[in-house]
Nucleic acid binder design. Sequence first.
DNA 1: CTTACCATGTAAGGCGTTACATGATTCA
DNA 2: TGAATCATGTAACGCCTTACATGGTAAG
Lengths: 184, 184
Amino acid sequence: MATAKKLDCVILGLLSHEELTGYEIKKRMDSVLHYFWGASYGSIYPTLRELCEKGLATVRGCVQSGREKRVYTITAAGREYLNLWLRLPVQKDEIRYETLLKLFFGEAGGPRQAIAHIDAFERKTKQELSYLLAAKKTLMGCLDDAPAHRYYLLTVQFGIETYRAYLRWCQQARAVLQQADKKE
Amino acid sequence: MATAKKLDCVILGLLSHEELTGYEIKKRMDSVLHYFWGASYGSIYPTLRELCEKGLATVRGCVQSGREKRVYTITAAGREYLNLWLRLPVQKDEIRYETLLKLFFGEAGGPRQAIAHIDAFERKTKQELSYLLAAKKTLMGCLDDAPAHRYYLLTVQFGIETYRAYLRWCQQARAVLQQADKKE
DNA sequence: CTTACCATGTAAGGCGTTACATGATTCA
DNA sequence: TGAATCATGTAACGCCTTACATGGTAAG
């Protein structure tokens, strides 16, 4: 359990709130979970099957407007499993930022190139930030609809704070590099 | 090339500054690169061999104080490869924070549990921050020794800014959850 | 009619971790 | 003399991504 597959837990977590299809799970991954967890269909569908085999979820075929869907539901055992995992201490928080890697070795490419990477990073960060700000607004409007919303908001707030820190850093870093560029 | 293995580039990046053994590369990964990239011996040693097979690095056996060492050096082709990669746009920056995952689904475990995860996260962040502040101090003292040092400092500064943002968020988040705990 | 979205899945292959296996040296 | 650190590697296994394969529906 200590080394439980994370995707099991993520999917179980999503199912603990609502019944979902594999396709919908992927959508959640790409929207609400997007900035701190990701997964592809190639991992989601097989995991879903495993979850059923382990008795942590059940499937139900469902024909909606002519299309066939497979709706997944969490079982009591699944909730137990999820709660067990939630109680365990966090094993690993990791960041893998290629931008920082390129910057770390950036001397080889010179200040101009490094600045270009920072510009791209800044653009992406601004975009993500505006998405998170919109998410926050939405959540603020329905905070009392479900107790889980407070927890969602906490993670959104995390993103907002860190993205703002990124943007401040971009300014600083660019200033340093522009200085270096002039000297060259 | 667009999909170049990142570890190749990281190792080549390290070798572009100095000759290193596999063991020393691992140490660099665990210290200077630690907060935005990681790797184990099980990936480092095989990668090193591949690098030599591709002609991007060369090995030299070396007996130092009785012990056998294998020292790796970057080749001209290796520098070219590294520079090519540095020029390419960043493919992916990703964060995988189990803490945020547990918090997102935290409603199932209640506010107390969520607070415990935040406390642990805060402790770890403080530790990492103090490490980075020490690294910054060291770097500030030898900024002009090598042009690469300015680039190192930039990444260290990134860590400092984001960790400080994390700590501010920890305060906020805990306050929100303590509020929720009282109501319960 | 064609583009975008809904919907499910498999297969090959890459990448990486953990655990194992081994042994020298240095320092307390 | 025992612990920590230096030092190099392999093997098994797990997890995930990419690419492929397929087809229905809705909207313009």
